[in-house]
Design a protein around this nucleic acid. Structure first.
Lengths: 342, 342
DNA sequence: CTGAAAGCGCTTACAG
DNA sequence: CTGAAAGCGCTTACAG
């Protein structure tokens, strides 16, 4: 492999000039620029990014911590991140945590070992003391997307989960539903907590009860939706609607309902969250909350870029969502319909 | 950030000893090991991987080139790759090509810039001259998985696509289908070519014709299946079965059939390929060909590890598949059934 | 505009 | 077992 030294020799200049000619051509005569360029081409020169990193103390790489690469939801977010990153000459290292805190934490080492300049985390399932100091300030360039911490000053990009959940419940109540169950994400999950809050607030506003067994904890997988639906649908007082905290679980519910002969949406309304591509390919098509995923990724990356260049970024950005009523929701059977004056 | 120098000072030894105590503790007295260890802990030392890379000339990182991160199919393959990589102290850089040759090619630079030691490519949509020299030998540590080149000696791990396609067709023919259409991947795609070959061979074996308009090129997306199904199902002589070269397209076909009132499987059989998780959540559940995805990833990574450690690997490994007949296939209507003696 | 020199933080033959 | 020294391949103040 050719190095700057080889080019210097061939072009008859110093290594300093080679470096300048390649990186800052305006700092060099046209003649030398040409000489160096030719020599570099002739030798098939490829700069050693490792050596450059060591010298400049930056890797031009950021690491994205992904809760689970198997989750469709993150696809467009990553596309958004990559687009902005590449446009700004940053490389993206994707770290899949496989839903494991320790694996996720491991990726932070890349910053300390100087292989990455910053972190864009799509999970808040990380030990907070590794991220922030005693003043709740981030220890290194860090941005959160989708998830966030309540108690730390980490810049983050997310939707209004509480409000979006209220939209869902309002819509169901307007249709006449009052027996509404909910399948959540893991118990500590910040997103799920906010959606739960929105759910509870909305129900309280209408003076509606939530039986304890109507709230069940899932794990965002197809299977958990499928299994929990079995419980929910065999309840003595069966819910007429199920609000799932993501689309995968909702799709699991649809399958179970089909198998045990509960008609969707006539006997059961189902709402998901995220609007992954498969929603429109379900039978019936899944009602859900659309998130501007690509925009979330782009915005988060721009925030990180700001931090990386030394600017103080806005600490928090909230992006809009949209309730999509499709085929899995309709008013409940007449005898189970809420009677209120609207 | 503390460096070996700081530790050396604090522990009262040389930097050479620090390096040895940390990396090869057996080459050092227990006493010094302890001193160094303590000093390192006290300073919160994190080794600079960049400096180490520059010195050792290896990054302990491999890059995986992904055709499209949006494709569910690759999830488990990546899980397999990461598992073996991490177990062997290699980091994995995931590069999403977004179905773009140029973007895919860009990731090869990481090897030349010394940021990665080798490449594991999940796509063959790459300029071959960038990969191999005039003797068709790989220019750097490189392994292919799933896709491959016919004309280059690049180690690869894949299934027998031709044989698997024959399994599908045999099964359909046994049921009595003879009007079998096919939705392929992009025209140059090695996998799709092989599956097409298997399809043709099988049909020829039974003396069955394939009308030209029964073969349509898709792009492995939900949407392309959905759109192509509209053409296929409006044909004057409609096929009784459609073999899709992946599950996404098959799911698109299911949606279209539902919309225009073609009953699956009574009036139309559909078979996919890959067995992604969503297959079992379709209505009806999708018949498909199962690929041992995680094993493909693990095997490919082991192959790359072998190359990285200087061994000559087996050039090619074929892994078994399994035809899964589920709810989307059954014999065609009696009047459209093939009459043969089996 | 150009060059000589130092240095980023490690590791590793080479002596002792 | 330990240390002094060189060097991986760059970039960048500092002189000129």
């Amino acid at each position: 492999m050719a190095t700057v030294k080889d080019i210097a020799k061939l072009a008859g200049v110093s290594t300093a000039t080679v470096s300048r000619a390649l990186a800052n051509p305006q700092k060099v005569t046209d003649a030398t620029k040409l000489k160096v360029q030719n020599a570099a081409d002739q030798l098939g020169y490829a700069p050693n990014a490792i050596a450059r990193s060591l010298r400049t103390q930056e890797s031009k790489t950021i690491v994205v911590i992904l809760p689970d690469i198997g989750n469709q939801f993150f696809t467009d977010i990553i596309k958004g991140i990559e687009q902005i990153a590449h446009k700004n000459a940053y490389k993206v290292l994707l770290g899949d945590a496989g839903n494991d805190v320790d694996r996720a934490t491991k990726y932070l080492d890349l910053v300390y070992s100087k292989q990455a300049d910053g972190v864009l985390s799509l999970t808040a399932d990380l030990p907070i003391d590794k991220l922030v100091d005693d003043n709740a300030q981030a220890k290194f360039p860090l941005v959160m997307a989708c998830e966030y911490y309540w108690d730390a000053a980490i810049p983050s990009v997310h939707i209004d989960n509480e409000y979006s959940a209220r939209l869902v419940i309002e819509s169901l109540v307007q249709m006449g539903h009052y027996k509404i169950a909910c399948i959540t994400g893991a118990s500590g999950n910040s997103i799920s907590i906010a959606r739960m809050q929105g759910f509870r607030d909305s129900m309280r506003k209408w003076g509606l009860q939530i039986p304890e067994q109507y709230i069940v904890e899932g794990d965002y997988s197809l299977l958990s939706g499928y299994e929990i639906a079995a419980e929910l649908l065999s309840l003595h007082d069966r819910p007429t609607a199920i609000f799932c905290h993501n689309d995968e679980m909702a799709i699991g519910v649809l399958k179970r309902a089909r198998e045990i002969g509960v008609k969707v949406p006539q006997q059961l309304s189902v709402v998901g969250f995220d609007n992954i591509p498969f929603c429109e390919y379900c039978t019936p098509e899944l009602s859900t909350v659309h998130q501007p995923r690509q925009l979330i990724g782009e915005t988060a990356m721009k925030l990180l870029l700001n931090i990386l260049s030394g600017k103080k970024p806005n600490p928090e950005i909230t992006l809009p969502t949209q309730l999509l009523i499709r085929g899995t929701t309709m008013p409940p059977p007449l005898d189970q319909r809420l009677k209120i004056d609207i």
